[in-house]
Amino acid sequence: MKKIFTSNTFWIILFLVLAIISTIIIFIMQSANTVGKTAEIYSDNKLIKTVSLNKDDEFTIKNGDNYNIIRIRNGKISVCESNCKNQICVKQGEIDNSLLPIVCVPNRLVIRVDSSKQEGIDAEI
């Protein structure tokens, strides 16, 4: 019994299965969320703004002394400037689906694209 758990084959198979499962989940999430049209902006875990991704826009979200400048362009949303130290939110670039929300931990900001609240069906044609 102990031999199975210490064998390379067991772990290779286990990790491969886990990797395949997570890849499938990632793909399912991605395909389910390709038509996100609105984005929700949370600051301090409170929904402070819901924006449409159809209109190009640029605005600033402030949280105390911290700020994030958010830009919407071509149906995609991104943080183009932030005063946080790690700048991960800026480096993440543009998102257009709910697969990877932009999370700026230092400024306690979360931007999530919501695919369930699509704007009128006539927008798709």
Binding site: S22, I26, D44, N45, L100, P101, V103, V110
Partner: peptide, 12 residues
């Protein structure tokens, strides 16, 4: 972040 939705990162 107090946002359980962050767990969407888990498979990645």
């Amino acid at each position: 972040t107090g946002t359980p939705a962050v767990s969407i990162y888990a498979p990645i």
